[in-house]
Design a protein around this nucleic acid. Sequence first.
DNA 1: ATCGAGCTTATTGTAGACGATTTAATTAAG
DNA 2: CTTAATTAAATCGTCTACAATAAGCTCGAT
Lengths: 149, 149
Amino acid sequence: MTKPIRLNEQLCFSIYKAQKQFNHFYSQALAKYKLSYPQYITLLSLYEHGTMSVKEVGQTLNLDSGTLTPLMKRMEKDGWISRKRSAQDERRVDVSLTQKANDMRDEIYDHVGSCMTYLDFPEKVYEAIKSQVDTVDQHLTAIPDEKLQ
Amino acid sequence: MTKPIRLNEQLCFSIYKAQKQFNHFYSQALAKYKLSYPQYITLLSLYEHGTMSVKEVGQTLNLDSGTLTPLMKRMEKDGWISRKRSAQDERRVDVSLTQKANDMRDEIYDHVGSCMTYLDFPEKVYEAIKSQVDTVDQHLTAIPDEKLQ
DNA sequence: ATCGAGCTTATTGTAGACGATTTAATTAAG
DNA sequence: CTTAATTAAATCGTCTACAATAAGCTCGAT
């Protein structure tokens, strides 16, 4: 006798839906800056770490060049970043923030921060949930692909 | 003075990463059936509710026809479902499971169920995390778009 | 019966995401 | 010092995801 799998009892589905809601939340919150969520976290990473290669940005976001190259070309076109091939190592492309990005930083921090208050979670609860989701991510990452085949 | 936003302290980023890990988990677990995660949850929904219109499937998954139509065409080509315009209401396209899908149901339930054990969470913990993620989803859904602009 | 409002699906365009391949640059080994 | 292996970015193909639009159908009101 096989146990049926009910969608609404699956953690994967809850996370799948929550991720899409967050995407919608940020698409609204960032609409005035014409930034998507993936573009926004790219910007956040650069605010935090300064100029980095495409590879290094990818490591902070878990994204590869196949995703980042076109995304960054759009961000360059929109004036958020500049991309320049490294002189020391010509395989690398260094990504840095523009004046516009630096000028807008505090405004973006403030606006997103104020949007977050609508989420209406006490600091402690927010952190508890985050830490549990991180645990799920760690458990998933620890499973070797071979075991699933 | 503006508070900087650190990526690794953001719940959205944890959920974003966990969602991608789940995607990878299922792409491995379902590789032998040539099913992607979105295709798998479409299948789960049909196992649970039986024949439905595209619209109704979309409601159970929070996906629109722009996503589902091409996805379902691929599933039809792969022999999982059949699509037929309703005779009663010719606006509807009814989606039903094939013999293959019904024959494979228990095997898929069993295989995915066994893969889930590698996640290694006690039932209680799993449910607690799921319920908290659901709460986040509900809070996000409750925010009117206007407040974020 | 016919018209039009509203519903439903299909289509199109843009953006992510990722595996696989390709190209170019660097490093390591013999 | 040349060749082999490695690395970084870009490219390609396929599959989501969703907004906007188009097209077709139903049903209610006249």
